[in-house]
């Protein structure tokens, strides 16, 4: 079976600070279809860069990235992808409904199918009729997060890539978000998300990977990755510090 996400020896370098910064240093990662995959790492570990490679925003200096077997650099590979960026924003001059319709049209959806899908997504992300008819400029942070998640789900994607999706959300919004993720898993979708909220990750993920310094440090089933008697937070700090020491 073709993996949902595959990265092989991906290296990304930036020029800056008088030298070359290696954001990803030969990253290897495989995410099988139908998993909820937590992608963890300290700040600057390369999580967002890895996602940007997967979405074709960044061309790696070496290695390759594939989505459902297709080269991630090709626009066609994004037909079955949904993406929610970190600190998402949207066209504030549109209403929530218009934004979802705009997003749907970019997937060549139209007519009744588009209208039905927009209504379904609004229901899924918990925005009622009144909210959908309002300009996004008037939305609260939680509503903004919901409508941006909506635009990521409008094409009923097979892979959903979420970058820090619970940042700044209140407990109710987090709970609602968890329900959406569980719903996606129940429908066989692959969810790949990064987060600093380790408790959140523990609650929803089947598998976890930790990266540090642009390299994969550890990866495995969420239930088996953390040794007995240790909490994920402690384990995370231990493996990241060990990776840093090795690099130093």
């Amino acid at each position: 079976m073709v993996p949902a996400i595959e990265m092989r020896g991906v290296r990304v370098e930036y020029r800056g600070g008088g030298g070359v910064v290696r954001a990803l240093d030969g990253l290897d990662l495989t995410v099988q279809t139908g998993h909820v995959f937590g992608f963890l790492g300290p700040n600057g570990a390369g999580k967002t860069t890895a996602m940007h490679v997967l979405l074709g925003f960044i061309e790696p200096a070496a290695g390759e990235a594939r989505l459902l077997g297709e080269d991630a650099r090709r626009a066609a590979s994004r037909e079955r992808i949904g993406y929610l960026p970190e600190n998402p924003d949207a066209y504030r001059f549109l209403t929530g409904r218009e934004l979802l319709a705009f997003s749907g049209r970019l997937f060549r959806m139209r007519g009744r199918a588009l209208r039905d899908r927009v209504a379904r997504v609004l229901d899924l992300v918990g925005l009622d009729e009144a909210a959908a008819a309002r300009r996004i400029a008037t939305y609260s942070r939680g509503m903004m997060q919901r409508i941006c998640l909506g635009q990521a789900l409008v094409n009923d994607p097979d892979i959903v890539i979420l970058d820090e999706p619970t940042n700044g959300l209140d407990p109710f919004a987090r709970m609602a978000f968890r329900e959406i993720i569980r719903g996606l898993r129940a429908r066989g979708k692959t969810v790949f998300f990064s987060s600093h909220e380790l408790s959140e990750v523990e609650l929803v993920c089947d598998r976890l990977a930790i990266i540090a310094g642009g390299r994969l440090v550890t990866e495995g089933a969420a239930s088996g990755l953390v040794p007995e008697g240790e909490r994920l937070e402690r384990h995370f700090m231990r493996v990241v510090e060990a990776a840093r020491e090795r690099k130093a």
């Binding site: 979405l55 925003f57 066609a76 993406y83 949207a90 970019l106 941006c148 635009q151």
Partner: peptide
């Protein structure tokens, strides 16, 4: 600036 370029280019938009 808004970051909407990421959500646009994450779709099959070249």
């Amino acid at each position: 600036e808004r970051g909407t370029v990421f959500t646009l280019l994450a779709k099959p938009v070249t």
